[in-house]
Design a protein around this nucleic acid. Sequence first.
DNA 1: GCGTCCAGGTCTACC
DNA 2: GGTAGACCTGGACGC
Length: 313
Amino acid sequence: MTLSRLFQFRFKPVQPYNFELTVKKPAGWSWFTPYEKWERGTVWSGFWFGRVPIGVKARSAGRSVIVDVYSARKLPKDELARLEHQLSESLGVNDDLRPFYKLMRKHRMLKDIVKHLYGMHEGWGMNIFSSLTLAILLQMAPIKRSEEMWACLIKAHGKKISFDGQTIQLWPDERTIAKQSPHTLAKRCKLGYRAKFLVKMAKQLVAGFPSVEELAKMTPEAANEKLMELFGVGEYTAGFASPHPSFSLDVWSIKIFYPILFGKHAPAKDPRSGIKRANLAAEKMWGDWRGLVLVYVLNDLKYLADKFKVPIT
DNA sequence: GCGTCCAGGTCTACC
DNA sequence: GGTAGACCTGGACGC
């Protein structure tokens, strides 16, 4: 599908702000889709905005971020305003990180991370189904296998969009996945039990579900509860997809956070058992900033491993 | 080469 | 409401 240029948005981020660190995280996480392109300070990416595939070209210009928006059809004014708002949230341009940095600098293991990732912001995903799909494919699998699963799923069912001389492949949308047979999906992309989760969840979303914006207007707890009504979505997956910053620890990240929170390694036999205690300690230590602490830590793991012997594998 | 374990969770049945 | 056990798959590991 070929898209035409629709509009240009210009954002003035609250400083400090680093565009490259924000859209291209050091840990390798992409802005919207694993198949977006990055070249000399410019990113080409895309996402589903409701039923409409959207392409974006974004770059930094001085203290501004310029985003060109591409679409196959014109959007009414109110939709355009919604898109502008969601893009500003996806770039985190309205967030003042200074109180967060003040907090990070108090911790002996975290203070240097501020220097390494200064100006990196975290934003919303633009599409709930894409975020949930990613989280479900991360369940109970080493990262390499998760990558194989999403590569196959996007190749088989993701939409290709072309704009500004680039072709980007999007995550599959919920209407496409809702029509698939879980058995076929499981066999084709080796998704295992996750195929049933994806198809049932897609059907629930097609039947009607709050948008990212509506979830953002809820309290973090209410948004998580709503997300957990979806089949296959537990606390971890809901936290991953929620527009509210969340502190979603899993069996892997608890091993990293245990030394940061308690100064010792997680229980070797059953690391999962420490998750509840770690969540309470993080809330006490960092309050509402704990979600961003998680993002910063996961994007500077090599430093933590080298300097503090934190287990990262 | 073969069997077992387990990984960036969640659901279900059972108590 | 709390808690085992099952769920896909494939790589790592021990023998």
